[in-house]
């Protein structure tokens, strides 16, 4: 998917970036950069470029067109196929109450289905993550993944328990936006995994939570690149709200037959068709979580993204720039030493 980024565009796109604000902040790259800042350490390009972008654009727009797409975790074609198939499989496993055949004879047939899914989903998740990191993970990506997952895991218990104030998602969405879909997927999965390990929350539900959160991160990375500034924040906030409801919806759907058992009017009825079950499920999710948890989660996402979003995005982008993911690394033989020893 994002692997389709033309690789030739990236090395050239990074250096001209600081060019438009040339006179005001001439010393900025050297001050902020230091020796580790590979991306900004290409000043020779600067004087050559100043005429190129139209400086008439308001300062907010400046970064829009030229902003390099950062892909901290490249999704190769094989990984993309795996990701796609595994997402479809995961979706089917989430939606199993609607897919189970309506005939009564199908009940015995599909009785073990959810148990099989509980066994299989971890395998699928492991396969996808292994494929995503196949060929080795850049140490910078690995460290960023770890640190952002730690932040998410630390944010999660802040709101847990208080009526759906769920703080995991906003940083996940912003990071997925900045670092790309592959990284968002991995971050969603690792965040919930680390959080479960920290709070001793490992259980059959964990693979499902990991998968759903990974989708949230993936989707944030796949949002259109074009909007910037306020439009970007608005788009991310809307995505945050939508993803909060979808997350609650699929998590409920998977667990619905277990959550209330059978024998109530809101129960899963294996003999009814998928439409009837979907209707019942809507009522169930309205009655239980849509107003409380899901709305709380959506409001948390909107408020957090609107208030903190611009600053956090800037911070993450600065880190992405300093990490210089797209800079090709090459090793060359040191000639003098080779000449010395025959």
């Amino acid at each position: 998917m994002t692997a389709a980024t033309p690789p030739g565009a990236t090395p050239g796109a990074t250096p001209p970036h600081p060019a438009p604000d040339a006179p005001a902040r001439t010393e900025a790259p050297s001050r902020a950069g230091g020796p580790d800042d590979l991306a900004a350490a290409a000043p020779p390009a600067k004087p050559a470029r100043p005429a190129q972008p139209a400086p008439s654009a308001p300062p907010m727009k400046r970064t829009s067109a030229a902003r390099p797409r950062v892909t901290a975790l490249r999704v190769g074609p094989r990984a993309a196929v795996t990701l796609l198939v595994a997402s479809l499989l995961g979706l089917a496993m989430f939606c199993w109450p609607l897919l189970v055949p309506p005939q009564p004879q199908g009940v015995a047939h599909a009785a073990q289905a959810p148990l099989l899914f509980v066994v299989l989903l971890p395998v699928i998740l492991a396969v996808v993550l292994a494929e995503l990191t196949e060929g080795g993970l850049d140490p910078k990506t690995l460290a960023l993944l770890g640190v952002l997952a730690a932040l998410n895991a630390a944010l999660r218990p802040l709101g847990a328990g208080t009526a759906g104030i769920e703080t995991v998602f906003f940083l996940l969405i912003l990071a997925g936006r900045v670092f790309g879909p592959g990284f968002g997927f991995a971050l969603g999965a690792t965040s919930l995994f680390a959080s479960a390990l920290l709070t001793a929350g490992v259980g059959p539900w964990l693979p499902f939570q990991m998968m759903a959160a990974a989708w949230v991160g993936l989707g944030a990375g796949l949002l259109p690149r074009r909007p910037t500034g306020r439009a970007e924040i608005a788009m991310l906030a809307a995505y945050g709200a939508a993803s909060a409801y979808v997350f609650g919806f699929v998590m409920n759907l998977w667990f619905w037959p277990f959550a209330i058992g059978d024998g109530t009017q809101l129960s899963f009825d294996p003999e009814a068709g998928p439409v009837a079950n979907l209707h019942t499920f809507f009522l169930y999710t309205l009655a239980t979580s849509a107003f409380g948890w899901d709305t709380g989660r959506a409001i948390t996402n909107i408020v957090a993204i609107a208030v903190l979003g611009p600053a956090v995005l800037a911070t993450l982008r600065r880190a992405a720039r300093r990490a210089a993911f797209d800079t090709p690394v090459s090793f060359a033989a040191a000639e003098p030493q080779g000449a010395r020893r025959p």
Partner: peptide, 26 residues
């Protein structure tokens, strides 16, 4: 849980390493 991480298969080495980073940084 940290000992459990050791049991991760080798293909998940990087992901496991980043989870270790997360557990250490938190």
């Amino acid at each position: 849980p940290k000992r459990m991480l050791k049991a991760l298969p080798g293909a998940l080495y990087e992901v496991g390493a980043s989870v270790v980073v997360a557990l250490t940084v938190a």
